[in-house]
């Protein structure tokens, strides 16, 4: 009987040791690695945002975006003409929208969407995941990690995320965005890994759908991602009317 107990204990210990690489790796550092593999800490990029309706009709927006550090990002709309010159700024939990003809930058909220469709402002002005979420648990299955993330504050758009990441490239493949009560708000699918140059290899397409917007789909396509340093002053309300000068 003792022998059986020893064997069972040995099996449990061996099992724990085999799964050690995941648990040994600091949870937060894995998330930070995913963040860094997705984007350099400071960079510029172009994105095309496509909202696709159930009947196949599409509406497209083109944006120029810059990001610095964990919590500063700006996006400037360059097409279509009706949106040209609009910019959105995010500093941590603060977000603003500037419309050139209309007036001064106004505060907007993360759950609104300046473009309609399934992407909201928090998706368009995405910060590092590690800046907004703590890692509660990591599971490993096959060649994927599943990270269970919990929002650090109530100001974050989604209370929980389930992030699936490729264990080799440490890049996200799918993210489920959930409420506090585990209701699914939307799913992001990361597709078409592409070499953008400068050591940046990441998915070039993010698709999203949502049970709240049945049969609608939104897509974000990335281009020209490159490392670039910016002064902090770029990420201010006063600078918003001058965003075009960064291109």
């Amino acid at each position: 009987m003792y022998r059986m107990i020893i064997l069972k204990l040995a099996a449990i210990i061996t099992g724990l040791l085999l799964s050690a690489p995941v648990y040994a790796m600091d949870n937060e550092s894995l998330l930070k690695q995913v963040d860094r593999n997705l984007n350099p800490e400071s960079y510029e990029s172009y994105r095309k945002l496509i909202n696709i309706e159930p009947d196949g009709r599409k509406k497209e927006y083109t944006l120029f975006s810059v990001k610095k550090g964990q919590d500063k990002t700006v996006a400037l709309f360059i097409a279509p003409a009706s949106e040209n010159g609009r910019s959105t700024l995010r500093l941590g939990d603060n977000m603003w929208l500037y419309i050139p003809n209309v007036g001064k930058p106004i505060r907007i909220t993360s759950l609104q969407s300046v473009v309609g469709g399934v992407f909201n402002n928090a998706d368009i002005l995405q910060l590092d995941y590690a800046a907004e979420y703590n890692v509660e648990k990591i599971e490993e299955s096959g060649n994927e990690y599943l990270l269970h993330l919990k929002a650090k504050t109530k100001a974050v758009a989604y209370d929980k995320l389930r992030l699936w990441a490729d264990s080799t490239r440490k890049l996200p493949t799918k993210i489920e965005c959930l409420t506090e009560t585990d209701m699914l708000i939307k799913t992001l699918y990361f597709k078409e890994v592409k070499d953008f140059g400068g050591g940046i290899v990441r998915p070039s397409v993010i698709e999203t759908d949502s049970p709240l917007y049945k049969d609608y789909k939104s897509v974000m396509i990335y281009a020209k991602i490159k490392k670039r340093e910016f002064k902090d002053e770029v990420f201010t309300l006063t600078f918003m009317p001058n965003m075009e000068s960064l291109r």
Binding site: N94, M95, Q112, A155
Partner: peptide, 12 residues
């Protein structure tokens, strides 16, 4: 002044 009190609530 202007401030976001919550993710869906702004005051000014």
């Amino acid at each position: 002044f202007s401030r976001n009190i919550a993710t869906n609530f702004e005051t000014h």
